[in-house]
Amino acid sequence: MSKNEKNEYWLRGRIEGVSDMLQPAAHALLQSREEAEAYLEGFPAKLFWERPAGRASVAFHLQHITGVTNRLVTYAKGRQLDEEQLKFLDNEGIPDVDLSLSTLLEDLENSIDSAVMYLKSLQEEDLTRKVGIGRKRIGSTLIGTLFHAAEHSQRHVGQMLVTISVVKAKMGDW
């Protein structure tokens, strides 16, 4: 690994094809993906659904980052959620012992990669366009929606790290 790859994404330079105004969003999304993978290395599947102190499970955070990123990009494109997205939303956090870590991480990676590809398709003049969020089409802007997707992913990675730490301590470093 080169020295450059050890830095956080925002210190690794531009993401090719992403406008300067959206570089922070791309960096945050890619950092979320990288940190989730690193934090979960060696995490046992039997603990995915543990909810210490009634808080969200590790699996929920992975599902939620995946789902929210996907949903916000859908709204950014001016669309409403389809049946598959609504079903995914309904199932977030419902324990499913058949879900593997590799599946959860692959879904997260695909969602983030898709979001970054969408960022590459945008021009800076698009960023102030109005966007309707949810069924009520609550008003935002394209840039606001995309930055929220990025910061939301970072927030849940942080919460997931705390959950991992608590579960790890509770289980004696598994």
Rank of each mutant, 00 (worst) to 15 (best):
S2D: 15
S2I: 11
K3A: 14
N4Q: 15
E5C: 09
E8Q: 09
W10E: 13
L11A: 12
L11R: 15
R14E: 14
I15G: 00
E16R: 07
V18I: 05
V18F: 05
D20I: 09
D20R: 12
M21E: 15
Q23E: 11
P24Y: 02
A25G: 11
A26D: 03
A26M: 02
H27L: 02
L30T: 06
Q31Y: 04
S32K: 00
Y39S: 13
E41S: 08
G42I: 06
P44A: 02
A45I: 05
K46N: 10
K46S: 13
F48G: 00
E50Y: 13
P52W: 07
P52T: 10
P52E: 08
A53N: 11
A56L: 13
A56K: 15
S57H: 05
S57F: 02
V68Q: 04
T69C: 11
T69R: 02
N70L: 03
N70T: 13
R71L: 04
L72C: 00
T74K: 01
A76G: 08
K77D: 02
K77T: 00
D82G: 13
D82H: 11
D82M: 09
L86Y: 14
K87W: 06
F88P: 06
G93I: 10
G93A: 11
I94L: 13
P95M: 11
D96H: 05
D96I: 04
L101H: 02
L101N: 00
S102V: 08
L105N: 09
D107L: 07
D107H: 13
L108M: 14
E109Q: 14
D113I: 03
D113G: 13
A115V: 09
V116I: 10
M117N: 13
Y118F: 15
E124W: 07
L127G: 01
L127Q: 04
L127P: 02
T128F: 07
R129D: 03
R129A: 11
R129I: 00
K130T: 12
V131D: 06
V131L: 08
I133Q: 06
I133P: 02
R135S: 12
R135C: 04
K136V: 07
K136N: 14
R137Y: 04
R137A: 12
S140Q: 05
I143G: 01
I143C: 03
G144Q: 03
T145V: 09
T145Y: 08
L146T: 01
L146M: 07
F147M: 13
F147D: 11
H148T: 05
A149P: 03
A149T: 06
A150P: 00
A150Q: 01
E151I: 06
H152L: 05
Q154C: 09
R155K: 14
R155P: 03
H156A: 09
V157W: 00
G158V: 01
Q159L: 15
L161D: 10
T163I: 15
I164Q: 07
S165G: 15
V167M: 07
V167P: 05
K168T: 01
K168E: 00
A169G: 11
K170I: 11
K170Q: 13
G172L: 01
G172F: 03
D173L: 11
